[in-house]
């Protein structure tokens, strides 16, 4: 009886595993097949990977889109981590009633749907364009500015600061470090794993961000990877081999991060419920 149960559990889990993995397998196999084979639903790896990649380089602006995505994601991640960790640390270490009120208000911003802010943000960057075109509409800066600071990340850093040994801060102060010095010399180096987890969440969110870049990045040379894929997917005569190769390339960075840093990855996700 117990053995039958066990086999049943393995069967159910295997079905879920196959369903979860199947689109990946199909995507990778399709990247090695020519377009007509992809539409026929061929599930055997082919020999057209190199050809697809060459067609991709010749017909699609992959390199500029990759460059834009890398610039935006890395800048957003670096700035996010600095700003959010300063704030999370500040709210916890210099705790006061007034700051707790501010913190609660900031948390409310997590309830605001992006669609509700999109139009005013677009108009705001329209105004900025007239004063400083370098950071106005259709610039990489405009694509990253609204997503640099999130209440979630501040919350994440505050939660993790709670577990930080406060005696270390006192020791630093006695050694004559300034408050900012204590933060950069003692807090940051001790909290490496927290920073790693935060970096992963922020990078992923930025790398995959679609709606705001779609609204604000109008000229094709400023497009990011998600915009490129979306355009390829909605073209009237799609070359499936090229599209699947692009999607595989776009998924590689996040897949690498996941497999190399799986522990931090999950820690980052769980940060909100600690």
């Amino acid at each position: 009886m117990h053995k039958v149960n066990r086999i049943f559990i393995y069967i159910i889990l295997s079905i879920f595993t196959i369903v979860s993995i199947f689109p990946f397998i199909w995507m990778i196999v399709s990247a090695t097949n020519k377009s007509s084979d992809v539409t026929k639903g061929r599930l055997v790896p082919g020999t057209h990977l190199v050809e697809n990649f060459q067609n991709l380089i010749n017909s699609v602006d992959l390199v500029p889109a990759l460059t834009n995505s890398v610039i935006i994601s890395i800048s957003t991640t670096v700035l996010s981590l600095i700003i959010a960790s300063l704030a999370g640390y500040g709210f916890e270490i210099y705790r006061s009633k007034a700051k707790d009120v501010v913190f609660t208000i900031l948390l409310l911003s997590m309830m605001i749907p992006f669609a509700a802010m999109m139009i005013p943000l677009f108009r705001m960057f329209g105004t900025i364009s007239q004063m400083a075109p370098g950071i106005g509409i259709d610039t990489l800066t405009s694509a990253m500015l609204p997503s640099i600071t999130t209440a979630f990340l501040i919350f994440f850093f505050r939660q993790n600061t709670k577990m930080f040994p406060k005696e270390l801060l006192e020791a630093g102060r006695i050694d004559g470090l300034t408050e900012l010095g204590v933060f950069f010399r003692i807090f940051v180096p001790t909290m490496k794993t927290t920073y790693a987890a935060a970096a992963i969440i922020t990078f992923m969110a930025s790398w995959n961000n679609f709606l705001w870049p779609l609204v604000v990045l109008q000229s094709p040379e400023n497009h990011t990877i998600p915009l490129l894929i979306s355009n390829l997917g909605s073209s009237h005569s799609p070359d499936f081999g090229i599209i699947m190769t692009t999607i595989v390339i776009a998924t590689l960075p996040t897949a690498l991060i996941f497999f190399l840093l799986q522990k931090h990855f999950v820690a980052g996700m769980m940060g909100s419920v600690k």
Binding site: T17, N208, P226, I229, G233, I243, I247, T251, F258
Partner: peptide, 15 residues
């Protein structure tokens, strides 16, 4: 089973 979470929303939608 966790693997689908690493895909970008746009990429998996097109797939």
């Amino acid at each position: 089973i966790f693997l689908p979470c690493i895909t970008s929303l746009v990429a998996y939608s097109v797939v």
